[in-house]
Design a protein around this nucleic acid. Structure first.
Length: 578
RNA sequence: GCGCCUGUAGCUCAGUCGGAUAGAGCAUCGGAUUUCUAAUCCGGCGGUCGCAGGUUCGAGCCCUGCCAGGCGCGCCA
């Protein structure tokens, strides 16, 4: 049974009732389940199980449904239960009971988010940019999706270790060191930037293609670095420091933080013994001068674990990383968030880890996402159509700022900039998080920076409107109790829909986290806002009669709380004023 | 050639375990503000769920084949 079943108090109660009815009517147990009604016209919840049940019981589906309903008297929480169509059971709740559930929900802890991860550690490996290269639009998905999963799993009770597995080791550093030494002035080196490093790398790389001596010199510098040559080591550390500074600027703007920044270099000391372990177990065998793992039995192609020149590749590094993480953290799960192109690699090295038995009880999971592309082409350095991440964020903030300045000419500039950043970044993140990760994203500025419709700012706006409304409520009715303490009255269908939607929050969080699909939560929050906006448009709060006013303020307060919490789980700010 | 993924409205996308009349946003057309923030709300238009079979009481969802596109397939990560 899925977690979402037990997170919605209404569903939990209805399931229990249906299952008791089943036991009474037919004996034994069955996993009967009430689901939110597909159409409000049917009621609040529906149960579709009579149809499949009928087959096992060898009877007519409608009769099965009738037998279920007749087995027990209608519980007080249910106002109406009727059979429709081939055997759907449509359930309408008693408004009083629903109101009680909502009141308890708002007053309860953390909006009912369950803790399936309690006592479990999960290592999540995301973002992982390469040193000496600026982050570009291709990095946004791993960073934003990975961070949302990070936040979701923490909310679900996991002890999360977010590790940024930087690309800080490999053949490119020989090329880079040569470029750094020969193409930069002292002044350049004093004011070094990642952008300069990238240019120097390209220049040096191009020269390796036509100059054999240069190529050999690059190799020599790499060997020296790997052997711990002090001078090269120092330069390499400079590259990392400069890069980290650049990355951290972006991460600050994105409100992303990591527990660890262990690059590939961190695992260098244990590569030798890792590959030796593979050889000792007979998992790795020599072939054409290299060491390979043959995985025909797993239906996979061979993977190289040590190159014929003696060097180690990323398969070896990744295996060593798993061993290291298992020893140090003993995680229940290790999650990698990377693009789809690496699926084969992960299958291979997961299989090797299994064979090696180095995973202990850790489940290795590859959460892959589709590449981002332009409507007319894929992004590629060669075509020169790559958008730098910094430029994207700047553009997002600039567009938001234009609107904020127009809306609030009287605000201090600093406040407007802060708000514009929250909105612009929120728009960019939401554009990504509202899609199923496992699909390609077609990038358009229009979509990424959308401020209307199904967008981050739509959610932020709904939240800000509620906060403003609640402030007015407190100002106008200073003697009124805390909105969360007021009894809820559910009379209008819009209130009912809103209440029913609120209760689905913990299920959405659980499903989004456990399935590593933040879009499940994004979709939920959007739907909640749609229901709220309809409610807000049609039903007055401040001008309603006392009891109704207090009740509606209560609903507003819970929605605002859910929005703030939900947006927080996606890493999106929830400003109080827009 | 083999493997993974994708194909749903003009465009971008949702679609819990297989359930009732397939939903949003954008675009477009038309409405709503003496009333709590119009970054909002309501309505119209718009569909052979790539194609063809199959399983099922019931298929966008499961199975088979085909078509189209993306990505990957031994020393880059």
């Amino acid at each position: 049974m899925a977690i979402s079943d037990v997170t919605n108090p209404c569903e939990a109660a209805l399931n229990a009732w249906l299952q008791e009815a089943y036991a009474k009517a037919f004996g034994g147990e069955a996993a009967l389940r009430a689901l939110p009604a597909k159409d409000a016209a049917f009621g609040d919840f529906q149960c579709n199980d009579a149809m499949s049940l009928a087959k096992a019981l060898k009877c007519n589906p409608r009769q099965a449904a009738e037998a279920l309903l007749k087995a027990l008297p209608l519980p007080p929480m249910v106002r109406k239960a009727e059979i429709a169509g081939p055997g759907f059971i449509n359930i309408t709740l008693s408004p009083e009971w629903l109101a009680e559930q909502c009141a308890a929900f708002g007053a309860g802890s953390d909006y009912g988010i369950p803790s399936p991860g309690k006592g479990k550690t999960v290592v999540i490996d995301y973002s992982s940019p390469n040193v000496a290269k600026p982050m570009h639009i291709g990095h946004i998905r791993s960073t934003v999706i990975g961070n949302a999963i990070d936040r979701l799993l923490r909310a679900l009770g996991y002890t999360v270790i977010a590790d940024n597995h930087l690309g800080d080791w490999g053949t490119q550093f020989g090329i880079l060191i040569m470029g750094y030494r020969h193409f930069l002035t002292d002044a350049d080196r004093a004011a070094l930037t990642v952008e300069m490093l990238e240019k120097v790398y390209v220049k040096s790389y191009n020269r390796t293609q036509e100059d054999e001596t240069w190529l050999q010199a690059c190799r020599d510098e790499l060997v020296k670095l790997q052997q711990g040559d002090a001078a090269n080591r120092e330069v390499w550390e400079t590259f990392i420091a400069i890069s980290r500074e650049e990355f951290d600027k972006i991460y600050r703007r994105l409100d992303v933080s990591f527990d660890l920044y262990r690059g590939e270099s961190h695992y260098q000391p244990i590569l030798e013994e890792t590959v030796q372990a593979l050889i000792d177990r007979g998992i790795a065998t020599p072939s054409e001068g290299a060491w390979i793992a043959d995985m025909k039995d797993e239906g996979l192609q061979v993977a190289i674990v040590r190159k014929s020149d003696g060097g180690f590749n990323y398969t070896a590094t990744d295996i060593a990383t798993v061993r290291s993480r298992v020893r140090e953290f003993d995680p229940a799960r290790i999650i990698y968030v990377t693009d789809e192109r690496q699926q084969l690699h992960f299958k291979q090295f997961f299989a090797i880890c299994q064979k090696l038995g180095c995973t202990a009880h850790a489940a290795l999971e590859h959460v892959w996402f589709g590449l981002m592309r332009l409507p007319e082409a894929t992004f590629s350095t060669r075509q020169g159509n790559v958008i730098k991440l910094e430029a994207l964020l700047n553009e997002a903030e600039a567009r938001a700022l234009a609107i904020v300045e127009e809306a609030h000419p009287d605000w201090p500039d600093a406040d407007r900039r802060t708000l514009a950043a929250q909105i612009g970044i929120g728009a960019v993140k939401y554009a990504d998080l509202s899609h199923d990760p496992q699909g390609m994203i077609v990038f358009t500025w229009e979509k990424a920076l959308a401020l209307e419709g199904n967008s981050g700012p739509y959610l932020q706006y709904a939240h800000a409107r509620i906060r403003s409304l609640l402030d007015k409520y407190r100002a106008q009715f200073p003697e009124a109790p805390d909105p969360l303490a007021a009894p809820i009255l559910i009379t209008d269908p819009l209130e009912r829909q809103l209440a029913l939607t609120m209760l689905q929050f913990p299920g959405a969080v659980a499903r989004a986290g456990e399935q590593c699909r933040p879009n499940v939560l994004a979709d939920y929050l959007y739907s909640l806002c749609q229901h709220y906006s309809r409610f807000y448009q049609a039903l007055p709060v401040l001008k309603a009669a006392d009891a109704v006013r207090a009740s509606r303020a209560h609903l507003c307060a819970v929605v605002a709380g859910i929005l703030r919490r939900g947006l927080g789980l996606l890493g999106i700010a929830a400003p109080d004023r827009i």
